[in-house]
Write a protein that binds this DNA or RNA. Structure first.
Lengths: 205, 205
DNA sequence: ACCCTCTGTGAATCCGGATTCACATCGAGG
DNA sequence: CCTCGATGTGAATCCGGATTCACAGAGGGT
């Protein structure tokens, strides 16, 4: 289109690179990874296909970076929840962390689906695994603390953390799937999860 | 290869058409729909790409038929479970139906994933929806019976049935996903589900 | 003014999966 | 024997998405 829009000035929201990432995020939120084609992404930004390759070596790399950003945001939110309840007994903090996770996922179902379960490029899959591990480790640390303090019964914290992350992911992926006529209400899922979590860690408190 | 294997005689397991369906099923069980390419399917049967089109108008039609068969088997199993417990109170029968569903899914995780949540052709998606509906109706009938008999509290049976199917699907899709380092143990998922189900219908008995 | 880099463009090109096409072959009937 | 229909084959062809390529304008630095 020979746009010739004056660069440098507050064009829209920063460089094209950022806008590509933002567009990709939008697309993923709307229709999952499958919907985020190079064509769609670049069109949304208002550039051509090939412009994307000025900023990323491949679509997979773009997605991997997007993924990394989103996941690190999720992780931060979970850690924040743990911090906020620093005074509370450990089981409550575990619950808070997982409910934060679940609540955010339910608030943005398609994104959560893409993050948790949608088939993706191997490159992106690697990021997914890496963050899943971080979630686990975060939780395991909390559990270790609880076990040391006596508010959580003796048990393998890594195992339990893994199970919890898995369980929550589990419960989240379902209501998010493209099917599901009347999707389970958010509160229902949350409360079921809450119960599950308390039972799972066998809280002493 | 100009095989010239004598036809008609107990070649392997029936006509090519059936063998194509069987091969597709295997593939889906191993790697989901994504793994079931025309090439792979026909190769397994020992014919070429194009031979498949002698038996199905398209890959999507083949998959739809496969889907229909598998789902109707699942439905039959669930109905069987309901029948077997005809003497029991309705909540127990509801539980039996859902546990049958869950148990079968957990025994064949990839297949369950493909059936419940994997993205598929619209044609196949239509079959999925159709069967999901049948599961619901099956369950709703049972609930209606329970409500009439007083073993289940007054409530909208269709809504509850939908929620139950959704919830179980929910819990099933997670442990099945490609990720999940140490997948939750089958018994754990089953028992969590069992509890959820009883609570959900608010059994009176 | 000149050159160099950054950022774009539009038109190829590549690629993998699905689908079609122009033949063969086999077995059944007439 | 000859034709027909069902079943296969192998070589195209089609298609949609990703990726590359040759070329161009815009500014900055010297």
């Amino acid at each position: 289109m020979t746009d010739t829009t004056p660069r440098g000035v507050a064009d829209v929201t920063g460089g094209t690179r950022e806008r590509l990432l933002a567009a990709a995020l939008e697309l993923v939120q709307e229709g999952g990874y499958a919907a985020a084609s190079v064509k769609e992404i670049s069109e949304r930004v208002g550039v051509t296909n090939s412009a994307l390759y000025r900023h990323f070596p491949s679509k997979a790399e773009l997605c991997a970076e997007l993924f990394r950003r989103v996941c690190s945001g999720e992780l931060a939110a979970m850690q924040g929840a743990a911090q906020d309840g620093a005074e509370l007994p450990v089981p409550d903090r575990v619950e808070a962390v997982l409910m934060t996770f679940a609540g955010r996922a339910l608030a943005n179902p398609r994104l959560a689906w893409a993050l948790i379960a949608e088939p993706v490029d191997p490159l992106v899959e690697a990021e997914r695994l890496s963050y899943r591990r971080k979630y686990r480790e975060n939780l395991a640390g909390l559990l270790r603390e609880g076990i040391a303090g006596g508010s959580v019964p003796e048990q393998d914290p890594d195992l339990i953390a893994a199970a919890l992350v898995g369980a929550v992911g589990e419960a989240l992926v379902g209501p998010v799937s493209p099917v599901a006529d009347p999707p389970p209400r958010k509160e229902d899922v949350m409360s079921a999860l809450r119960i599950f979590v308390r039972r799972a860690i066998g809280t002493t408190a």
